[in-house]
Amino acid sequence: MHSDRAPLGLKVAAGLGLAFMHLPILLIFVYAFTTEDKSYQWPPPGFTLKWFAVTWERTDVWEAMGLSLKVASISTVIALILGTLCAAAVSRTKFFGREAISLLVILPIALPGIITGISLRSAFNLADIPFSFWTIVLGHATFCVVVVYNNAVARFRRVSGSLVEASMDLGANSFQTFRYVILPNISTALLAGGMLAFALSFDEVIVTTFTAGQQQTLPIWMLEELVRPRQRPVTNVVAMIVVIVTFLPILGAYYLTRGTDTVAGQGK
């Protein structure tokens, strides 16, 4: 059947579906260059580069971007450590409670973000923890673990069978086996998982609104602009930059895991 040509109707439906998914994002790119600054007028009356310069001068954008990068980096590091440990344990043997652990890892992303958000918020409230950089990281790392875990666990399973035994048989202790056999075989999966975790954290807004207090990450900055627009063209430019910044790690993760059994990103 796969050698057949696709029916025309299917081709059109699939093409329209893809177009539906992509055209809105491309529209952002056009709006970043519009000369109109009071409304979302289409077609744009003219094109200009000046909003890039204006955006460059905006310290609030830079600060929000800086905070987002810092949060995403640290959350990614924590998620990498916790996700790898978890994947190692789960793939190793059938221990008691293994299913429970898998469920626990997936839960923060399976339940709506607002639940994670308000849960953390109530917990901070009950425990009298004031909002800070670390309250944001706490939330982000929690839901990023699953991305790393998903990427690592399949690869771990493949390595943890006879390759690990072969290494031990040839005289390598557990640490040497990890260093010389496991790590080289899971590194691309980890890198891909890390990139996806970074992208996920960099973009997150729902949980963050509950854990950030008065701090502004880039998505929160954008949310403010969406609810109460101040300078629309700056928002357009920032939106375009965000698209490009998240585009790169996704593409990287895809190419790193291409052709393996689990291509990264399916478990957002």
């Binding site: 994002i25 996806l196 954008m222 969406l226 998240t246 957002k268």
Partner: peptide
Amino acid sequence: PLWSSYLVKVYSWKL
């Protein structure tokens, strides 16, 4: 589209 920014996607529809 799955991984591109949620807010940007919402924003594009506001446009």
